[in-house]
Amino acid sequence: MAGDLKKVAYYPGCALEGTGHSYNRSTKEVGKALGLELVELKNWNCCGAMEVKNVDPQVQTYLSARNLTIAQDMGFDTVMAPCNGCYHNLKKAEYDLAHNPHAAEVTERISKKAGHKAYEPGGVETIHALDWIKHGVGEAELRQRAKGKLAGLKVANYYGCMYTRPRHIFPEKDQGTGSESTSKPHFMDDILAAAGAENVEFPLKTACCGGAHSLSDSDISTKLVLNILTTAEACGAEVIATECPTCHSGLEMHQVRAEKVLGRKTSVKILYFTQLLGMALGLSAKKVGVQENLSDPSEFLRRKGLG
């Protein structure tokens, strides 16, 4: 992990300005509460999400690399992206530019035409919001600050696909004690446990929610999401904690769709890990944007004495 995480560049990405706004809000509020400063990238662009690579993978590499250039120009060596898609794409651009001469050549060519200098790999490290809190604050301080506020809350931690796969773009993972695992990630578990939550054993941490085809192949997405929801319930979870806006809105949307189309009702709540952590730190539900979620967990939160 790069040096000081007390002040890092912030890349929210498109989803956090739209359906994932509550993730944006709660991330910023948690940072403020923990004394971590975020400086948003100036005039950033979309990273290419999951779609542009299907038109052309090199365009996605360029789009992501442009954001890394901005971070570098602003004098940062670390950029934090809370969205799994953005995080994944920035990591992938870093990897491809270092290992694939064709990718480097295309990025160089488009950057030149666009009128800015091309990103050179090695300049900026991309981290996820989980890395940011786990390494920037640490569990000891979280434990002290949260005072067990999430005690008795049964949580299934859901990480999705893009946080760990494909593994070659995450060279810092699977490096033994203290590092994140690609087969059984645990950073979110660690953070929420420090805030007092009771994490349930959940085998679908890195299962796919079908997010790439959330609209274009809704029936498969609904089946995949329903599997995640029912498994979380069977494991005893009351809440699924998320760390990706696509997974999060996918779970919320297809929870409704499963009920309307398949007649399968589930009641497990879906909250961003930053929302749970924020409330554990004493922030109100409103402050962490619970009212902006697509699903409504307010009654459950009241019952649990949160927010």
């Binding site: 999951m50 696909c161 893009m162 760990t164 796969r165 494909p166 593994r167 690609t182 796919c208 079908g210 997010g211 790439a212 085809h213 192949d217 498969i220 997405s221 995949l224």
Partner: peptide, 11 residues
């Protein structure tokens, strides 16, 4: 076309 790009295969 129904591949969901979860990359479990690539992994």
């Amino acid at each position: 076309w129904q591949c969901v790009s979860c990359n479990k295969c690539t992994y």
